[in-house]
């Protein structure tokens, strides 16, 4: 379970997170929506300690993420993250992109890690691309590679940051299909997305971000079809 308690964060004078409270239960999918610059990405980075926080606490399985006694490398094994810009490693083949952390972090043997990497690449439909470099893959394939790379680590949680935003429209479907599959398997996920129909279908709860706060949160039915607050309505009417 992920517990985010009254988290505040600023970059210099810019207040980016202004008291975020959110609990994500195991098996739950929570979608974060909201205008660009409202702090969604920053929150994800704070959850797996890629960014520090100024105030508050983030607990992952009751471990305090930003506590200085916490081993953050160890903690990140539990938390897979996938970014909007894929961030695949351009100097490594698809297979090695996935197997690198298996070897270095999970200390698997070469054979074990390669077998597992292959299995995960097949699962996301990249069977034919094992020995291709990211530059030889389409955006959708690179994003599925990034998902496979995160999943191979068997994380308990997935943090997904607008992972379809950089894709051509015809490639969005293939990545969303992969996410549906994960949701069906019971993966716990925090998903930043602009795909409202997807959120409506897959999310257990949807949170609307506005100026560093969770302005409104609820079931997809309530929040998307029946928003209470005016800002939420405005945002949804712009995006739908």
């Amino acid at each position: 379970m992920i517990k985010i308690k009254d988290v505040h964060k600023s970059y210099g004078d810019l207040k980016v997170l202004d008291g975020i409270d959110l609990e994500v239960n195991n098996g739950e999918v929570v979608c974060l929506v909201g205008a660009s610059g409202s702090g969604k990405s920053t929150l994800l980075l704070c959850v797996n300690a890629l960014e520090g926080i100024d105030k508050g606490e983030v607990l992952v399985d009751e471990i305090s993420v930003h506590d200085k006694n916490t081993n953050q490398n160890e903690l990140r094994k539990k938390l897979g993250i996938v970014f909007q810009q894929f961030n695949t490693f351009p100097h490594l083949t698809a297979l090695n992109n996935v197997s690198l952390a298996l070897k270095l972090v999970l200390k698997m043997s070469k054979k074990e890690s390669n077998d597992l990497a292959e299995e995960h690449l097949i699962k996301v439909g990249l069977k034919e691309k094992l020995n291709h470099y990211p530059s030889e893959l389409s955006g959708g394939q690179q994003q599925r590679l990034a998902i496979a790379r995160a999943l191979a680590m068997s994380p308990s949680y997935l943090l997904l940051d607008e992972i379809t935003s950089a894709l051509d429209p015809e490639l969005v479907g293939e990545v969303l299909d992969t996410l549906r599959m994960l949701a069906d398997e019971g993966m716990t996920m925090i998903v930043v997305t602009h795909e409202i129909p997807f959120a409506r279908e897959v999310a257990n709860r949807v949170a609307f971000f506005h100026e560093g706060k969770i302005h409104e949160i609820g079931s997809p039915k309530d929040l998307i079809s029946n928003p209470k607050k005016i800002r939420t309505k405005e945002f949804l009417s712009k995006i739908l």
């Binding site: 890629l50 990140r76 094994k77 993250i81 810009q85 961030n87 490693f89 952390a101 790379r149 680590m153």
Partner: peptide, 13 residues
């Protein structure tokens, strides 16, 4: 890019 650093750290390196 700085993102490469984040991606690597995010995997637990």
């Amino acid at each position: 890019s700085k993102n490469q650093n984040q991606a690597a750290k995010g995997l637990g390196l």
